[in-house]
Amino acid sequence: MSSNALRIGRFVARRLVQAVPILVGIAVINFLFVNMAPGDAADVLAGEAGAASPEFMADLRERYGLDQPMYVRFLVYLGKMMTFDLGYSFRFSRPVTELLLAHLWPTLLLMVTAILFAFIMGIVMGVIAARNVNRWPDYLISTGALIAYATPVFWLGLMMIVLFSVNMGILPSSGMETIGAGYTGWRRAADIGQHLIMPALVLGMYLTAFEVRLMRASMLEVGEQDFVTTARSKGLGENAIAYRHVLRNAMLPLVTMLGLQIGAMLGGSVLVETVFAWPGLGRLAYTAVFQRDINLLLGLLFMCSLMVIITNIVTEVAYRLIDPRISME
């Protein structure tokens, strides 16, 4: 067992080392893209102040190093990035790293909930549909998945707010917890949970629909493979065949796809967090873009790359734990 843990540890370490050049590459691209947009933070700050003298502008630029040539700014940025010093956010007047960490947990909570929901629902519904193929539970689930697949996320978010918050008043429409309630412990967890339901559902809806359809197809495909006939020839019942033999094999494509869908989900979280005023990275990104908060934006992009890389490593490990044919080496 411990040798297994060691193998996983070595695998993760190797993957992390391999990720370093990728991260540097991403940093280059991030930096170039953000700097290609016209205007800089000084323009924005000055613009919001109404009017600003050229001296004030020059002073701002000098103070934040915006007057340096681009390659100097990039090298400085890269050097600092290595030590997780992601600079200072002009808009929030706080270090970027601090801002990111403060907004990371809400986003992680939201995304992990959405992913777990999608994964579990995908398996449960996919299995029910596949085991009742071309009967009413299958039609119901398949049609439902198709509708969910085709529903725009922002529309769904707004409709849910109208229904559950405005009309029925049973779920809070925004934020992560009740401000000023001062809850602690379980009471606070329950409060956060209540705030979490709608954004997590909306964020996970598309992925859920996707995974249901994938799981159904995968179950049906695996169900026709030779080893399933072998299992049947042993005298196993249909439940044992489905859950012991087909299910695990059918889950493999789901795990693979999950790793690929995380990036798309990060994009979705910008939308969902904005609609539900969820205090996470997505909403932070939205703010950063519109206020030309370049340091913050770069930090966010860096953070997202890191998250995508880590999720991919996690899915790779999960895949290898399920499938012995793919080795950790």
């Binding site: 030779d226 080893f227 006939t229 072998t230 299992a231 042993k234 019942g237 695990r248 399920i322 499938d323």
Partner: peptide, 28 residues
């Protein structure tokens, strides 16, 4: 019936299939 059939499979008769590559569960 299904139960009797399951009981018969493997005890009265069993099958060795043509494709050894695909007739065993790869995850077990």
């Amino acid at each position: 019936d299904v139960r009797t059939l399951r009981q018969v499979r493997g005890t009265q008769a069993s099958i060795v299939f043509q494709e050894p590559m695909t007739s065993l569960n790869p995850l077990m």
